[in-house]
Design a protein around this nucleic acid. Sequence first.
DNA 1: CCAATAGTTCGATAATAGTGGAACTATTAG
DNA 2: CTAATAGTTCCACTATTATCGAACTATTGG
Lengths: 119, 119
Amino acid sequence: MKQYDHPCAADFTVTQILHALSDPFRLSIVRRLAVLQPQPCAPLQAGRPKSSVSHHFAVLRAAGVLRTEVVGVTHMNSLREPELDSRFPGLLAAILAACAVENRDDEAELNPFVATQPA
Amino acid sequence: MKQYDHPCAADFTVTQILHALSDPFRLSIVRRLAVLQPQPCAPLQAGRPKSSVSHHFAVLRAAGVLRTEVVGVTHMNSLREPELDSRFPGLLAAILAACAVENRDDEAELNPFVATQPA
DNA sequence: CCAATAGTTCGATAATAGTGGAACTATTAG
DNA sequence: CTAATAGTTCCACTATTATCGAACTATTGG
């Protein structure tokens, strides 16, 4: 039964976290996990080869963004939200909120009739 | 009289901003500017060759993080805080706050007698 | 034990980013 | 006009990251 190394919260660094989240694919993984958690890797692959997906998960783990727990044959991922928030309060929330803003733009672009007024 | 291109706030992207700020040198520039603003490039060089400094400023400009205004012979830099905040509310603040946390650690490491209690 | 599943690790290659010297540009001071 | 200043641009080089196939590992189901 193999498990993973996860840095402890005190060792998280701002630059490592920002770098981990500055990649569109990795950021999309984090956004999905923020909504539905925990989740195995497979549904987040988005058509990429497994080795590439595995690499991006490793980057996110190393930055402390997520935790991977081996549960039977699947590896369950969850955001390390409590630890992230205790170390850097509000950081993850602000980034996710920023993604939501960006996403709202995309919807507006696809369909100009929605989302001119927020609600 | 040459001026620079600055993207407009609506074109800022989360990944570009996070990437721009994921470099320690660039992040240090932003942290200095957050305190003392506007400022020319020279005092922020930290001993690096000018071409390298110029490159990092260009990355920050392209991401929308700062604005460079040609004022006489110097180029004055300032954070685009209002625009950043209107586009991604709280994002810059959260990142700067996270830096402050990290910095507090460093001080504690250098001198264990201060900073065990915040004040 | 065997096959299937889920994901990792390795290794080569490609792409992206950072570095730093040298020549260049714009502005001001003399 | 000339020199000095502040920074940019260009270019070659290095270093870091990402990509993806193939072989590997751990776990479960039959």
